[in-house]
């Protein structure tokens, strides 16, 4: 059971000031509880990596944990803006934040390259768009066989990956199911990894031989945190709290109401 830790211990052991941290979960299984623990431990100067910053990074950015954000779509899905992200980018509150911006295809390829132990990802993309001129990490390579010019971005290799999964078994293997996003790639591309889970089971029971499983030797620490993805969701446990995502627009709009929410719901 050496893999299993309380969330406070796991976060303080694995994540340090200045680390690059990828907290993934594509709408589904976003590791909110771990994000709130990072806020409580007052970690600073993090480089936050995530395809869709979502509410979790809005909260971390507003709480002053981030120095830099690497991302590809920074909105509140189906609702509108991430106000804390916007406040940091547009007005430098609570601190200025550096952004490195990509497209989804680039980020997805960059995670796969990281997991594959490659220095960069090669793909078709970014043709004729302004981002390619502004982000120095978007470059091109020429295919040595066909001469085709292809887009190229550095592999993502975070210090720490953090994900939430539905369940682990007693040995510490983790089962990923449903919308699996880039979580497997995030864990396999990172130096260290933290997985929060809904529950621990004696064994996974009948499953497809192709089930997506992270073997225990790919995970640094597991914390059992039921509800750890709320207001995101865990398929089969609880559904996405869409009304909270709608409400967040109001909560996060002003610095005061955000800080009040933070005090009542996270740090108190």
């Amino acid at each position: 059971m050496a893999l299993f830790f309380r969330l406070e211990e796991a976060v303080s052991d694995l994540i340090h000031d200045g680390d690059s941290v990828a907290m993934e979960g594509f709408t589904h299984l976003i590791p909110f509880a771990a994000g709130h623990e990072i806020i409580r431990q007052r970690l600073r100067n993090l480089t936050l990596i995530r395809m869709t910053p979502d509410l979790i990074y809005d909260q971390l950015i507003g709480a002053g944990c981030a120095r830099k954000l690497i991302f590809s779509w920074g909105g509140n899905p189906g609702v509108g803006s991430l106000h804390r992200l916007r406040d940091a980018v547009e007005r430098g509150w609570p601190n200025p934040i550096e952004i490195e911006e990509h497209s989804h295809a680039a980020m997805a390829n960059a995670y796969a390259a990281g997991a594959s132990n490659l220095p960069c990802a090669v793909f078709r993309g970014y043709e004729g768009v302004d981002l390619a001129q502004l982000n120095p990490n978007i470059r091109t390579v020429t295919c040595p066989f066909t001469g085709e010019r292809l887009a190229c971005v550095p592999a993502i290799r975070p210090d720490v990956a953090v994900i939430h999964a539905r369940r682990a078994d007693r040995e510490g293997n983790v089962l990923l199911e449903g919308i699996v996003g880039v979580q497997k790639e995030a864990v396999l591309s990172a130096k260290r990894s933290l997985v929060t889970v809904e529950e621990v089971v004696d064994n996974f029971g009948p499953r497809s031989p192709n089930a997506v499983i992270l073997p225990k030797w790919t995970v640094s620490a597991i914390s059992v945190v039921p509800g750890g993805a709320r207001p995101s969701y865990a398929h089969g446990y609880y559904s996405r709290d869409n009304s909270f995502y709608v409400k967040w627009d109001e909560v996060s709009k002003s610095r005061e109401s955000f800080l009040e929410w933070l005090r009542l719901e996270v740090t108190a």
Partner: peptide
Amino acid sequence: PLSIGDGELCETALTTVSVP
């Protein structure tokens, strides 16, 4: 769906693949 990844989409899909 409100978001691009609501559970409704996965539950009613023929198959669900990873984002990469």
